[in-house]
């Protein structure tokens, strides 16, 4: 019998794609603010696209599509198969909650961008700030978990 890896994403290519997608989301997400040109980052050869808002907008959407697909795969896989062997750790719940919050606010902002959709301006400001705040907290949590070697899951 094959042993199941003790993490949700395992050590397979999905884990690598998942991490790359998260990196792409964070980078293209921060590029929505006009900072990369101001602080010379877009001047680095090969990074000029970071100052092109429509390009980073599309990359953010593409990365979000991959992120949503993989998240749905991992969630269903966990609920149907891996839940018998592993469970989410405390830090796993925290990170999953933060990602869920990012997903929800992100979806609302995608809806906001559709033609004909006019959301209340107060809600848009809240969504923008919540999306940014959540990613900052997520990055801090992820780095802390990495340093403290906290895993997403533990064995049952």
């Amino acid at each position: 019998m094959n042993r199941l890896p003790l993490t949700i994403a395992g050590t397979n290519p999905i884990r690598v794609i998942y991490l790359m997608t998260l990196f792409g989301l964070v980078l293209s997400g921060f590029a929505q603010m006009p900072i990369f040109k101001r602080y010379y980052i877009a001047d680095i050869p090969g990074l000029g696209w970071l100052a092109q808002f429509y390009v980073t907008h599309l990359i953010h959407y593409l990365a979000a599509i991959i992120f949503i697909g993989i998240s749905a795969y991992l969630l269903v896989d966990y609920l149907m198969v891996r839940r018998k062997q592993i469970r989410l750790s405390g830090s796993g719940y925290l990170r999953a909650g933060l990602l869920a919050g990012l997903l929800m606010t992100g979806i609302m902002l995608v809806i906001r961008n559709l033609n004909g959709v006019i959301l209340p301006s107060g809600l848009i400001i809240f969504l923008d700030l919540a999306h940014l705040g959540l990613v900052m907290v997520f990055l801090f949590t992820a780095v802390t978990c990495l340093m403290l070697k906290k895993r997403w899951t533990t064995t049952r």
Partner: peptide, 26 residues
């Protein structure tokens, strides 16, 4: 805004694709 909003439609399909892949694997 058209390219981004066309991609937004793909976001609806993404979770279905993920679920289908997990069920297929099972």
């Amino acid at each position: 805004m058209a390219d981004g909003n066309n991609l937004a439609a793909a976001m609806l399909i993404a979770p279905l694709a993920g679920v289908a892949a997990a069920v297929g694997k099972l």
